[in-house]
Amino acid sequence: MASTKERLAALRSYLETLSADKTTFIVEGGREFYTDKDPVTYLLEHGAYTPDGRRIVLYPHPVEGVDALSLSFYQLIDEAIEAGKLELPEPGSDEL
């Protein structure tokens, strides 16, 4: 059986991963992957892959009680994960 010190160390390690300023993705196999970057920045820079090559399969987010703008944002992230990368279109404007 693990000693109290070992159990506390494991708990501290786990609590560090729950930091509110980190983005959580789920990778193949169901494990969590954490990054300091927001989901859009991470997907733009790295695509739907972790630094060690694991495939990101999900960005956990609420689906009920979400305003339309937030829902659209989450859908953008979901589509990028499904496609394997996030590509934003070139900005454009209407003709004057």
Results as ranks from 00 to 15, higher is better:
T23A: 08
E6D: 05
G47F: 01
A68Y: 08
Y49M: 03
A9W: 04
L88E: 10
H61I: 06
G30I: 10
D52H: 12
F25M: 07
R54W: 03
E82R: 15
A68H: 08
P51N: 09
G30C: 00
T4H: 05
Y42G: 06
G84V: 13
E79Y: 15
P62S: 11
T35F: 05
E79L: 15
G92T: 09
S3I: 05
L43H: 02
L18Q: 11
L15W: 10
S3E: 06
A48E: 06
S3N: 03
R7S: 01
E28T: 12
G53R: 10
G65C: 11
L88G: 12
I26W: 01
L18P: 02
L88Y: 08
R55I: 00
E45L: 04
V57C: 08
L11I: 14
T24S: 01
R7T: 00
L96F: 14
E16G: 09
L44M: 13
E90H: 03
P91K: 04
V40N: 03
T23E: 11
R55P: 00
E87L: 07
V27T: 13
L86R: 03
F73D: 03
A10L: 15
S93Y: 01
G65I: 10
R31G: 03
Y59L: 06
K85E: 15
E28G: 12
P60N: 10
V66L: 11
